[in-house]
Amino acid sequence: MKTFPKPATIEPMSQRMTVAFPYKRSTGEIVGRFLAGLRDQKKIWGLRVSRQGVVVPPQSYSEVDAKAGGEWVEVSQTGVVTAVAEVTRPIEGLHPSTEPFAFVLVKLDGADTAIAHVVRTKLDRLRVGSRVRAAWAPDGERRGTIRDIEAFEIVD
């Protein structure tokens, strides 16, 4: 068998590929009803669960002690920003905007946890402590996802 001489330099070989995972995720009772509330009622529901208070958005159990069940509580559509991450260069195919925007955590009035979402306007005035209000995707365009809340907007 002949030895094959190794070249002194080897041009790297590469291939670009997009790997697609077309997942369809089951929501379950609690997440599914919360999302239906966004789509059909334009309401934001929390669930009062064991040792966590009113959790928004809710899970099917308490994250603290894993107890299931709880009482539905409608929370305000206005709340206070507890964290801000201002994205100056959005990432294509991942971020919900091609223009600069901010991710925020918002503790809605009546909730004991904060919801993660985005703010698209008046970013120069946005900071921890800002009051914001949910803005909705128009009727007929809400699909039953967290993005049925189109964004949060600063309340003047």
Partner: peptide, 15 residues
């Protein structure tokens, strides 16, 4: 909502 690690780190930093 499209969060990535740099963004969650920035949320944490701001808090």
């Amino acid at each position: 909502i499209g969060l990535d690690a740099a963004s969650t780190a920035a949320l944490q930093a701001s808090a």
